[in-house]
Simulated assay, not measured.
Amino acid sequence: MNIWIFSAGIISLFTSFVHIFAGQVDPVRPFLKSDFPDLPKATLLGCWHMVSSILVLAGVTLVYIGWFGLDSFQNLVLGISICFIIFSVVFIMVGWHFFKLHTFSKLPQWMLLLPIGVLGLLGIIYI
C-alpha cells in the first residue's frame, strides 16, 4: 500500500462529494435560477459535471493505485497530481483577481485540491 497516493484518493473522493452535494446548493442552483441566458447556464452546468466526473475518477484511480501499491502507474499519478496542483493555482489566481487577500477564505477550494496533488507527488517520491 502507498499511503500517500491512497490518501490523495480519499481526499479527492471527499472533495467530489462536497462538490456534488454542497456545490449544488451554493453556486449552481442560484446561477441556474438567474436571468442569465440559457447558453451560459448550460455551459456552466456541463463544466460543473465535468469537474464532478474528474474528481470521482481521479479519486477512484488514486485509491486503487494507492491501495494496491501499483508502482507501475506512477506516470498516471504524476499526471493527476500535476493537474490538481494546477487546479489549485487556478483557484488562487481567479480568487486573487476578484478578492485579493480574501481569496483564501472566499474561494477555499484550493485547500482541497492542493493536498491531492502534493500527496500524489509524495507517493511517487516514496515508492
Score class of each variant (00 low, 15 high):
Trp96Glu: 12
Ser34Ile: 09
Val51Thr: 15
Leu32Trp: 00
Ala42Tyr: 07
Val18Arg: 07
Ala22His: 15
Gly9Ile: 04
Ile116Ala: 03
Asp71Ala: 09
Gly79Cys: 06
Asp71Ser: 11
Val89Tyr: 06
Leu13Asn: 02
Gln109Arg: 06
Pro30Arg: 03
Pro40Thr: 06
Phe98Gly: 04
Lys100Pro: 04
Met111Gln: 13
Pro37Glu: 14
Cys83Ile: 14
Asp38Trp: 13
Phe68Pro: 08
Leu44Gln: 14
Ser52Phe: 00
Val118Pro: 05
Gly79Ile: 02
Ala22Thr: 13
Val28Lys: 12
Phe99Trp: 04
Gly79Phe: 08
Val118Arg: 00
His19Trp: 11
Leu101Asp: 14
Leu114Asn: 02
His97Cys: 04
Ile82Val: 15
Ser72Gly: 02
Val63Met: 09
Leu57Thr: 10
Leu112Tyr: 05
Leu70Val: 12
Leu44Ser: 13
Ser81Ile: 05
Gly123Arg: 02
Ala22Tyr: 15
Phe87Met: 08
Arg29Tyr: 11
Phe68His: 15
Leu78Gln: 02
Gly66Arg: 05
Trp48Ser: 01
Val60Asp: 01
Phe68Trp: 15
Phe99Leu: 01
Leu55Lys: 03
Phe31Pro: 04
Ile80Trp: 00
Tyr126Gly: 10
Leu76Gln: 10
Gln74Lys: 14
Pro30Asp: 00
Ser16Phe: 07
Gly23Pro: 00
Val18Asn: 10
Gln109Gly: 12
Val94Pro: 03
Phe14Asn: 01
Gly59Trp: 00
Leu55Gln: 06
Ile85Ser: 08
Ser105Met: 12
Ser52Arg: 08
Trp4Phe: 09
Ile116His: 08
Thr43Asp: 05
Gly95Ile: 12
Pro115Gly: 07
Asp35Lys: 11
Trp48Leu: 02
Leu39Ala: 08
Ser52Thr: 13
Asn75Ala: 11
Pro30Lys: 11
Pro37Gln: 08
Val118Leu: 11
Ser12His: 14
His19Lys: 03
Val63Gln: 05
Leu101Lys: 15
Ser34Pro: 00
Phe73Asn: 08
Asp38Tyr: 06
Ala58Asn: 14
Ala8Leu: 05
Gly120Met: 12
Leu121Glu: 01
Leu32Glu: 10
Phe98Pro: 02
His49Pro: 05
His97Leu: 12
Ile3His: 09
Val118Asp: 03
Ile127Asp: 09
Ile54Asp: 01
Ile20Cys: 01
Ile124Lys: 11
Gly23Val: 08
Phe6Ile: 01
Tyr64Leu: 09
Thr61Trp: 03
Asp26Glu: 11
Ile86His: 02
Thr103Trp: 00
Ala8Ser: 12
Pro40Lys: 03
Phe98His: 11
Leu101Gln: 15
Gln74Thr: 10
Ala8Tyr: 04
Leu107Met: 14
Phe14Cys: 07
Leu39Asn: 08
Ile10Met: 15
Val63Phe: 03
Ile85Cys: 07
Ser53Gln: 08
Thr15Leu: 14
Leu70Lys: 14
Val28Leu: 11
Gly117Phe: 06
Val77Pro: 05
Ile86Arg: 05
Leu121Gln: 01
Gly9Asn: 07
Lys41Asn: 04
Phe31Gly: 03
Lys106Thr: 13
Met111Glu: 11
Ile124Cys: 08
Leu112Pro: 01
Met111Ile: 10
Ser105Cys: 09
Gly123Trp: 04
Ser72Tyr: 09
